[in-house]
Amino acid sequence: MAKFEGYKDIYVFVEQKNGTIAEVGYELISEARKLVASIPEMGYQVVGVLLGSNITDKAQEVITHGADKVIVVDDELLKDYSTQFYADALTQIIKEFKPDSFLTGATVLGRDLAPRVAARINAGLTADATKIEIDTEKAKDGEALLLVTRPTFGGNLFGTIVCPDTRPQMATIRPKVFDMAPADASRTGEVVTFAPAWESTEPQVTIEKVVEKVIEGVDITKANILIGAGRGAEGCLDVLEACAKELDGVVCATRAVVEDGYMDKSLQVGQTGKTVRPALYIACGISGAVQHVAGMEKSDMIIAINRDPQAEIFTIANMGFVGDVNEVLPLLVEEIKKAKAA
């Protein structure tokens, strides 16, 4: 006898804009596939939820990326994102289809929508997670308890959160923490269209204008090599820039450096900044606060330079160097130049 009668499957909100699907949706579907595979006895499916206008033909794309089923709401009111209409539609989908777990990307849109829906149905919602699992022991008793891990300041470095008493178990998950499986054109699945009963079609918030954001400098999430500046590097940011130039990389920063006014917020890496996964991350004068590490620990290779041999960054760096960045970096720039000339 299941604890929550009728609740099943893992649902993923598939965020799209003007018909282009955000990668995070496919990252979560790929991870949800692994979750359902870990509990074969439950017979769960991965279900995508696609909201928008003129997007029904995109459902097949969601299936090729791993969904068994896609629930589509195709309505003019959903053309642009609106908290009001998206929350109305999603709440009705949850009430109608009873997802056991519901995952949303922790994007600006996801973090606007998910809490609104969770409050309306009084479901537990874990924010900005970096890892999800299902308790395989409990699954043997017919309960697919979702274990959601996120960095926390509650006394320890990481917390695993569960919602044992409410359904669906909701979580927002950071983009880029999971790999996106390649599309498989041979996959087949079911497309279900759903027509919500709108509480009101009168918008409470209207979009007056959309302006492309002027991104000062570059997009650090796309950089292959990043040189990270911490407080210990505030005195030699020009040398970090020179080093980045030699390596064809980009300089990014911790929150402390951004708050001290040395670097733009768009270059901030960490829990409140951006998540990056470059091939190489050189952490310069970065202590390794949980906040920052959460945003860069998935880098392929991490090299850290810090004066303090006890610095936390050394526990995650592939190569750690005890030293003063003010002394090391100018020499490193010279060594890189030599290596290029050789």
């Binding site: 006394g155 990481f158 569960v162 590490v293 526990t315």
Partner: peptide, 11 residues
Amino acid sequence: SPTKVHATFTK
């Protein structure tokens, strides 16, 4: 509070 802390751990 529907969310409960299941475990805390260090990396």
